[in-house]
Measured scan of single mutants.
Amino acid sequence: NRRVIAMPSVRKWAREKGVDIRLVQGTGKNGRVLKEDIDAFLAG
């Protein structure tokens, strides 16, 4: 159960899209999950 680094707005975006943010690979600094990462995860 790893800790995910993400801005609150990104966490909210993931929740709205029904995405478990822990499954998303972050591409930002220090592995931070970005809004673009959520979109890419949804795109496959």
Rank of each mutant, 00 (worst) to 15 (best):
D39R: 07
K12N: 09
R32M: 13
N30E: 09
R2Y: 08
S9M: 07
N1K: 14
W13C: 15
I21R: 00
G26R: 02
D37C: 00
E36F: 07
V24H: 00
I21N: 00
E16R: 10
I38E: 01
V10T: 05
R22T: 11
R2K: 14
R15Y: 14
I38A: 01
K12V: 06
G26F: 01
D39K: 07
I5L: 11
R11H: 11
D39Q: 08
A40I: 08
L34H: 05
R3S: 11
T27L: 03
E16D: 11
Q25R: 14
N1H: 14
A43Q: 13
L23P: 01
A43C: 15
I38L: 05
A14D: 02
R2I: 11
Q25H: 14
V19A: 03
Q25M: 13
D39A: 07
G26E: 01
M7Q: 13
P8I: 10
S9E: 12
K12G: 05
E36N: 09
I38V: 12
N30L: 09
K17M: 15
G31R: 05
D20A: 05
G26I: 02
I21Y: 03
L23W: 11
M7V: 12
E36G: 12
I21G: 00
G26L: 00
R22A: 10
N30A: 10
I5K: 11
R11D: 05
D37I: 03
L42C: 07
I5P: 05
G28M: 01
A43M: 12
L42A: 10
G28N: 01
G18L: 06
T27G: 04
A14W: 04
E36K: 14
T27D: 02
L34F: 06
G26C: 01
T27M: 04
G18Y: 05
K17I: 10
P8F: 07
F41A: 06
I38T: 00
N1E: 12
G28Q: 02
S9K: 10
K29F: 11
R15G: 07
W13F: 15
D20S: 05
G31V: 01
I21S: 00
K29P: 14
A14L: 04
A6K: 03
N30G: 13
K12A: 12
G18T: 03
T27R: 05
R3F: 09
A14Q: 02
K35W: 07
A14G: 03
R22D: 06
L42N: 05
I21Q: 00
N30S: 09
G44Y: 13
A43R: 13
A40W: 08
A43P: 05
K29L: 12
R2H: 13
K29R: 13
V33I: 14
R3N: 10
F41M: 06
A43I: 12
I21P: 03
R2P: 11
G44S: 14
G44P: 08
L34P: 00
V10L: 05
S9Q: 10
F41S: 04
R11A: 06
D39H: 05
L42G: 04
V10P: 02
R32N: 06
W13L: 15
V24K: 00
R3C: 15
P8C: 15
A40N: 14
V24Y: 00
I21V: 05
V33E: 00
K35P: 04
S9A: 13
R3L: 11
R22H: 09
V10F: 03
A40R: 14
R32K: 07
G28T: 01
V24L: 06
A43V: 12
I5F: 07
N1R: 14
V19Y: 02
A43S: 11
K35F: 08
V10Q: 02
G26S: 04
I38P: 01
K17Q: 13
V4W: 05
K17P: 01
A6M: 04
V4F: 06
A40V: 09
R15C: 15
R3G: 10
K35M: 11
K35R: 12
A40P: 02
K29H: 12
K17V: 13
N30Y: 12
T27P: 00
L23R: 11
K17D: 03
L42P: 04
V19S: 00
N30P: 01
A43F: 09
R3A: 10
L34V: 08
D39V: 09
W13A: 15
A14P: 09
E36Q: 12
G31C: 07
D20F: 04
K35L: 10
K12S: 08
K17Y: 06
R32T: 08
S9Y: 09
V24P: 02
I38R: 00
W13M: 15
V4G: 06
N1G: 13
V4L: 08
R15S: 13
G28I: 01
G18K: 07
S9P: 06
L34S: 07
